[in-house]
Write a protein that binds this DNA or RNA. Structure first.
Lengths: 139, 139
DNA sequence: CTTGCAAATGCAACTCAGTTGCATTATTAT
DNA sequence: ATAATAATGCAACTGAGTTGCATTTGCAAG
């Protein structure tokens, strides 16, 4: 999963390799954690790539449709985006410094989901689990 | 936990019993599930109580401070509020009709939290768990 | 009942994340 | 080199929620 392969795959599907697209893919590959639109913008500025916010949102939409990233909500009124996960994982959110850490959870909640589905006649498609607390630095 | 007792408790603490306050407490008691500011407004109109949105938000803040309600995020860009829970519970959210159902989960994730805390040196204070899928009606 | 005062309210104008319409620019296949 | 159209920039907008400030109202004390 490197920059060149991803961009080549996009190009083969008929999508153009613009400076915004290349830079944003790079940003996500080099920052493996949830980023807000504002985070993305400041990372782009670091790469000397100046883009309009509309373009950032449109590129986010594109990368979501391509399943390169996915959208998550951490509850602070701002959407975040992270690399499309290979593994099933959740998030540790520090209430002090707002840092976010991803944690693996193999076979997470499968038994619980089965029980809940049956009891409530609700067909569970996915779940979202977040832990709020204090990270190592902020304790 | 009835209307009169709650209002009396507020009055004893020196808070005023305005028509907005009385109506909003009533709305939450009669709608035991997460409501958005817009939901609250339409319920108030049903009770023939017309209030400015600023007042609704300020009353939400008041009821949050009083721990009569709490704020939750369901991920649709709008905050929701529900009666302050006695029990530990989570939510089933229908991706089709957006209805929300509360479900009990006694001793939910306690063992997992212990493991996660130790492994990541993260002091967990609370967690949020949501199940997305199809409710009985929408399947 | 009247009065005084702080709590509560309404209004208008604002913030901030995200969206839309439209004219312009740039990438790519030929 | 060129044409087609994907991508961009800009300005104006939306919608949830907030703020400052002048006005109204609930309620306790006289």
């Amino acid at each position: 999963m490197n920059l060149k392969n991803i961009l080549e795959a996009f190009r083969k599907k008929g999508h153009r390799l613009t400076k915004t697209r290349k830079a944003m893919v790079r940003v996500f590959l080099h920052n493996n954690r949830p980023l807000s639109a504002a985070d993305i913008n400041s990372r782009l500025e670091h790469l000397a790539v100046t883009v309009n916010k509309t373009t950032i949102y449109r590129e986010i939409d594109f990368l979501k449709k391509e399943r390169f990233i996915r959208e998550i909500e951490l509850g602070d009124g701002m959407k975040r985006y992270e690399l499309w996960p290979d593994d099933h994982h959740h998030h540790l959110i520090c209430v002090e410094c707002n840092s976010v850490k991803c944690i693996d959870m193999e076979h997470c909640l499968v038994n619980e989901e089965k029980k809940i589905s049956e009891k409530n006649n609700f067909m569970i498609m996915e779940h979202s689990l977040k832990f709020f607390g204090l990270c190592a630095k902020c304790q």
